[in-house]
């Protein structure tokens, strides 16, 4: 796995797309910093971008990369190496190169603006963490979809739909259900709904940093415990990790049974 990882990482890190992705974040972060002249404020503006964009890019690159390297995977399959190592190697190669572009793209401008000594440092670190988690999750989901669907167009559409669903539609349905059942206590329900969506989990991680003041304005005991203590952060983070582990495991399981 390490060998495959090494080479696919080297391949990707040299690709034009990695550079574009890196530049995108560097330019966005740089211009936000320039316009607001305050790291704290730039972090807040970036949050919305990250919630939408990291999953989208991860999904697209995941599907594209898998389909593009199908023939190469076949070549590798003929080598004395485990199937799962090939896929895992490629998965980590892509995920880590994307994460690196993302982290460096944001990190370099923020370093120049002195994020290290700023009080917004924790917020920024959580932002990077959330974006990276999303990348890991959505590349895995994209791989699962691509492995399952030989048809590229079908795979692509499905992956985009999954992204759209989790990024936007899910929250719409969620909000609707909160209104339909508004007579019931919904604290627990809404926390459970949140853990079922990796984008919501990352959002909560960031929210816990930026909006504690507002979150503490709520009376529900469950909410208070979740938002008011470190439980919220720990629970969200571990659920977020589950959202990486489970798709990766199912990707491995699919790969073991697949005919190439």
């Amino acid at each position: 796995m390490i060998k495959i990882f090494k080479y696919s990482f080297f391949d990707l890190i040299r690709s034009r797309w990695s550079l574009i992705y890196f530049l995108f974040f560097a330019v966005t972060a740089g211009s936000l910093l320039y316009l607001s002249n305050d790291v704290g404020r730039a972090v807040v503006s970036l949050m919305n971008i990250i919630i939408i964009l990291c999953p989208l890019i991860a999904t697209m690159f995941g599907v594209m990369y898998y389909y593009n390297s199908r023939e190469f995977i076949e070549l590798l399959l003929a080598q004395p190496i485990r199937r799962e190592s090939i896929l895992l190697g490629q998965y980590f190669g892509l995920t880590i190169s994307l994460t690196l572009s993302f982290v460096l793209g944001l990190g370099i401008p923020f370093l120049f603006y002195g994020i290290l000594g700023s009080i917004a440092l924790t917020n920024f670190v959580v932002l990077l963490l959330a974006g990276s988690l999303l990348t890991f999750t959505f590349v895995a989901l994209a791989f699962v979809i691509a492995v399952k669907n030989e048809n590229k167009i079908k795979g692509f559409s499905l992956a985009i739909f999954v992204w759209l669903f989790l990024a936007v539609l899910y929250d719409g349905l969620f909000l609707l259900s909160l209104f339909i059942f508004e007579d019931y206590p919904l604290d627990k329900f809404s926390l459970i709904m949140t853990t079922l969506n990796p984008i919501d989990l990352s959002r909560i991680l960031i929210m816990l940093q930026l909006d504690v003041s507002a979150l503490l304005g709520y009376t529900g005991a469950v909410f208070n415990k979740f938002f008011g203590t470190s439980i919220g952060f720990i629970v969200s983070l571990s659920c977020g990790l589950f959202w990486v582990i489970i798709p990766v495991l199912s990707m491995v399981r699919l790969a073991k049974r697949k005919d190439f």
């Binding site: 936007v168 604290d187 919501d200 909006d211 529900g220």
Partner: peptide, 11 residues
């Protein structure tokens, strides 16, 4: 009240 959990959601 519970909808506060959707704060900052793209939706």
């Amino acid at each position: 009240e519970s909808s506060i959990i959707l704060l900052r959601s793209p939706f």
